[in-house]
Amino acid sequence: MVKEIERYGIPIVHMATITTISQSVGANRIVPTVAIPHPVGNPTLKPEDEKALRKEMVKRALDALATDITETTHFE
């Protein structure tokens, strides 16, 4: 899905846990996430800490969209 959307020239960032798959299938901008059942969350944290974590991750994803790249890049 990632690649097909990118074919329209729209930058896309893949937030995924198993970034090896993400890379194999050809995503270009990748933000590694926490775990498969809760990619952008961590239920073991206190609510306010979880929120902060999630905000930081989404910010990283947005910044990735605003970053020019020439090859597959992990934004960690």
Binding site: I5, Y8, P11, V13, M15, V40, L62
Partner: peptide, 29 residues
């Protein structure tokens, strides 16, 4: 299937393009 994923991506991408979307966040589990 990858074929369906490609189809979905193509269809969704088309809509996003037409809607003037500048960037996409796609999350996967």
């Amino acid at each position: 299937s990858v074929a369906n994923a490609v189809k979905f991506g193509t269809e969704i991408g088309k809509e996003l393009k037409e809607a003037g979307v500048d960037g996409v966040i796609l999350t996967s589990t």
